[in-house]
Nucleic acid binder design. Structure first.
Lengths: 204, 204
DNA sequence: CCAGCTAGCTAACGCTCGTAAGTTTCGCTT
DNA sequence: AAGCGAAACTTACGAGCGTTAGCTAGCTGG
């Protein structure tokens, strides 16, 4: 990720901005103030260019949001499928799935904040598509819990309720986690994976 | 709560809007599209009046948000203090505190969504004040957990992590709960209170 | 060494926003 | 019946938004 120094002190080099840098700046500001609370002028300022120059690297403000959300949800699902591939055991799978999900929310805080706050601001074809991806993830977690109940590993009244609770407590890590704080992202993720199993009443 | 019929079919009565109705309309729209995503014209339209007429019932758009957030956080803290007053037992207190918090998020979904999404859009004196109230709540939950660990009722690695997880999984109820769905608000609240104790590893 | 592409720039657009000022309408009280 | 006040209205403003058009400078490849 290129931080793209807001202003190069030396005037010798023609500074140029990549579309990755635009996405990165947009990501930071959307996470901070929300999509509607962020003006393109603020993104441009952060990159050291004028507002219209942004259009050399993007098609529209909405496209920025769409790209960010789509990429994030794609990565989340990829994480998930990678995590549950190693085993068929619901206990192992739920621990691994929660771990990668929690870990992602600690290490990709901005993405998580934007997805959770501003997905609803997407234009309609994309909105439904993105909601479907989230639902797919939720259903997958739920089915792990259901299988765990069936085989006696879990004891929880309602798999849906548990899956919501597990996912959303993990999401919230993005709100308070700070890199360089008392706990590493991995430690937090391990702890949350444990919480997930406790919610499902696995006596580990 | 006065729903204030958007348009009275009968033209006989001079329809008049109260400031409670304005707050209610703002609450609905802020919850739906976010503070920055909502225009005063939309609030006015929902009330069947013209935009400038809103100023007979409020001072500014920001004041609307401030009022809504302040009232909600006040009620949350009142709920909490009412819930933990009955007992000194950390197990009983954590169950009761989680129950009322979860219940509030099921029964006051709009308020919860606005507080969680748009508190950061508040102007600076209010922002710090509101953050302080949330922190106060979080500290109170954490201290219950810490006391539970000390007396051996709970076994959890870190009280802070657990309190975050418990609070945030409850907050998210506002995102999916629907009145008239398969489970009542009370049932969900009870289940979540149980989740909280499981996270803290109380073998109930 | 020049042509062309890239990525800046300025200027300007049309629109919407929040808000202010002043006016009209209408029900209630006296 | 008159008058007052509340709450609606119209009109208008200045600012800021996202976006377009057209121009310019500089690096790159032939």
């Amino acid at each position: 990720m290129p931080p793209t120094d807001t202003r190069s002190a030396a005037p010798e080099a023609r500074q140029t901005v990549t579309s990755e840098a635009v996405l990165d700046a947009a990501l930071t500001l959307f996470a901070e103030r929300g999509y509607h609370g962020t003006a393109l002028s603020q993104i441009a300022e952060r990159l050291g260019i004028r507002t219209p120059s942004l259009y050399n690297h993007m098609r529209s403000k909405q496209e920025l949001l769409e790209t960010l959300v789509a990429a994030t949800l794609r990565d989340v699902l990829a994480d998930f499928h990678g995590a549950v591939a190693d085993s068929e055991d619901p206990v192992v799978q739920l621990r691994a799935a929660t771990r990668v999900y929690a870990l992602r929310h600690a290490t990709h805080r901005r993405e998580a904040l934007v997805v959770n706050r501003d997905t609803t601001s997407l234009p309609e074809p994309a909105l439904t598509e993105m909601r479907e991806r989230r639902r797919e993830h939720e259903r997958a977690i739920r089915s792990i819990i259901t299988r765990g109940i069936e085989c006696g590993a879990f004891a929880v009244g309602n798999a849906g309720l548990a899956s919501f609770a597990i996912l959303e407590m993990s999401v919230s890590i993005a709100r308070w986690f700070r890199e360089g704080g008392p706990r590493s992202a991995e430690q937090v993720a391990d702890e949350y994976a444990e919480f997930a199993l406790r919610i499902c009443r696995y006596r580990g």
